[in-house]
């Protein structure tokens, strides 16, 4: 079961992300919002209407746990088939923002 308190802990991080976006790489590149990135995740980790059987659901996923998972995947410390490769594309801020986004789905 998702723990709503964990979601609360990181709710504010979407604002630093926006801030980071303007600061990032001499502001040459803007950053996509958490929702824009998250839409990619949802294709495989879909809503229950999609009828997926094996891939873990991530809507309402506890934020702290998701941060732990994604940073673990990114570092290659957590066993994965595919998420280790995808997580390498995410910044710390994006991981925080995605965790906050999915915790509130």
């Amino acid at each position: 079961m998702p723990d709503p308190r964990e979601a609360e802990n990181v709710k504010g991080v979407t604002i630093p992300l926006a801030l980071m976006a303007t600061l990032a790489a001499g502001s040459a590149l803007a950053a996509p919002t958490a929702e824009t990135i998250a839409r990619n995740c949802v294709v495989c980790h879909g809503p229950k209407e999609a009828g997926q059987l094996e891939i873990p659901k991530i809507a309402n996923y506890p934020a702290r746990k998701m941060v732990e998972m994604l940073t673990g995947f990114r570092a290659g410390q957590k066993e994965a088939t595919i998420m280790d490769r995808i997580a390498k594309a995410l910044t710390d801020e994006q991981i925080q923002a995605l965790a906050a986004y999915f915790a509130n789905q």
Partner: peptide
């Protein structure tokens, strides 16, 4: 087990993308 899991994930990917595109 990884190859087996990825074969199962392929089916889930298919279900997911069909839902996202036409569902």
């Amino acid at each position: 087990k990884d190859r087996d899991l990825e074969a199962a994930y392929a089916y889930d990917w298919y279900r997911g993308i069909m839902y996202d595109a036409l569902g």
